[in-house]
Amino acid sequence: MNRNLLRFLAGRVVGMVLVLFATSFVVFSAVHLAPGDPVTFLMRGRPITPESRAVLTAQYHLDQPFLKQYFLWLGDVLSGDFGRSVQFHQDISTMITDKLPTTLFLVVYAMVIIAVLGLALGILSALRPGLIDKIVLVWTGMAVAIPSYIAAIVLLSIFSVKLGWFPIYGAGEGFSDMLWHLTLPAFALALMFAGLLARVTRASMLDELSREHVEVARARGVPEGQVIRKHVLRNALGPIVTVVGTMVASMLVATSIVETAFSVQGVGSLLIKSVTAKDFPVVQAVTLLVVAVFMIANLIVDLLQPLIDPRVALGGDQK
């Protein structure tokens, strides 16, 4: 088992490196695919003096052949140097590490809401067919269909503007203040995903509820609560964990909208600002970050699956 685990991990890490390598190439080439010459693109159309052109050319190694430029850039990226923001004239790595805690706080907070709300509604819906199930289905249908920027505006106008319970903008300082500031953004971010999770949980639970071993457990006098917990929910975890895993990266992208709506200074709002300002080095860095997070989340999901269902073998090549 442990040797299998190591082999599996080694294979996955090699795969991840290859994917990141390919992604980095695409991300880098995009500068050259943009119309006009890279310097004009990087200067975002502002008039350029020959001196600044020379500085930029040297900074981005634009006088070198394309592939060499890529490897020089890759070398910098690997050493943690993503270059400087064209817009803010700051070191990108520092900018991202400064903003990452806020975004992580927001994502984790939203994740907790998604888990609690999504699981609770999904379980309720599966166990109470009829009216409650229908209400939950309508609600989750709406939640899935409402984009997060609409949710953000609605939440803002009700809870901040009308009721004044929560602040309108900013991320706050310190844990409790951040919790207060980020509650509405977290809900705006979580609603759609919670609806999705509720649906997946419901379907997976219903599938397990119809299994004969559940009937057997009841026939053995196991109390209903324990039947649901240890036999139905426990067995329904596979699809739930998979869907949560794929959510992580999508949430990171969705933070860009929510953070912008609530004026929270995080990685997401940085991405939006950089895209609108054509601040390409920042977009490159954030894109690589999202791809890396996506792959790590998937790796964790794959590692969890055999723990949930012992019939799933790691890597799927044994037996």
Binding site: E212, V216, K230, R234, N235, I308, D309, P310, R311
Partner: peptide
């Protein structure tokens, strides 16, 4: 096969 929970 059906009457024993396969995951426990």
């Amino acid at each position: 096969r059906a009457s024993v929970n396969p995951m426990r």
